[in-house]
Nucleic acid binder design. Structure first.
Lengths: 145, 145
DNA sequence: TCGAGATACATGTATATGCATGTATTCTGC
DNA sequence: GCAGAATACATGCATATACATGTATCTCGA
């Protein structure tokens, strides 16, 4: 942060810069797996939160439901995810990971681990932990409930 | 962060969540000014870094040059920014803020200040400062030179 | 000075993001 | 049990993001 002017004060611009940089890093490292970090996150959440709805997935990811729908699109097209009308509420779509999706997720995992390792390496353990904690406690206060 | 599984470990997903949330907050507050926080950042940097080139602007914003070009598009279309071939190096385009652009920037400023105030309010002074510091020191280590 | 390589930007392609709105379904009060 | 309100998702629209590639320009050595 070399800027001296007041713009250097803006948490939002700072956050977006950091998010861009770190996303670039992850995406480059994960490229051989054929997944962006966004897509990895979607698959991993779909795996963990079995039969989750589009909206619920959005809440977990702090992502607008319409964005979730669209981001799932390429994953559905590749046959890694299926959207099924919920039996209980036919307005809902349950997000299901397919076998192929689970396989891809498993194969991508080492690259994701490596990306985390490299980031932590660049930051140093202490700063990495500090950053994660700061983000967690901040997010807690910005999200409902 | 209610998730207990290992995904909660990922700095990148965390950063992106936080960036999405904070961007939504800023964009909502700044909407009456007719600018997104991204556009505000571009205009403000163009104002501060007089005659900056597209690439240099990208370096300041940790943004790919092609992304800078495209993000400038709507600002050029609205007559807030002009791209001029550099006299020194005709490959370069100098980013100039127009009078109209300066006016819009000035009008948007109070909304931006208000967004920052609200965020700081939600986080608390100490956590806000901690977060900003953590982001700054982390960014320092992720950027070249 | 001239040509090969490097550089700066623009553009093609694909994805990421959110608001406003539309459609199907469910819920609720009566 | 039904009409109106509320909800869940899809879609139109505008922007945001980056890599690969194309084009114009510059640089530097022979």
């Amino acid at each position: 942060m070399s800027e001296r002017y007041q713009l250097g004060d803006c948490s939002c611009l700072r956050l977006r810069k950091m998010a861009r940089r770190v996303t670039q890093l992850y995406d480059q490292i994960m490229a051989p797996a054929g997944l962006s970090v966004t897509q990895f996150g979607l698959l991993a959440h779909a795996w963990f939160l079995k039969d989750v709805s589009v909206s619920e997935l959005g809440e977990h990811l702090v992502m607008d439901p319409s964005t979730v729908t669209r981001n799932l699109r390429p994953l559905v097209d590749r046959g890694w995810v299926e959207l099924k009308v919920s039996a209980r509420d036919r307005r809902q779509r349950e997000v299901h990971l397919t076998k192929a999706g689970a396989t891809v997720l498993g194969e991508a995992r080492p690259y994701w681990v490596e990306a985390q390792r490299q980031l932590r390496d660049m930051l140093g353990d202490q700063r990495a932990t500090l950053l994660n904690d700061a983000l967690d406690t901040a997010l807690d206060r910005l999200l409902p409930a």
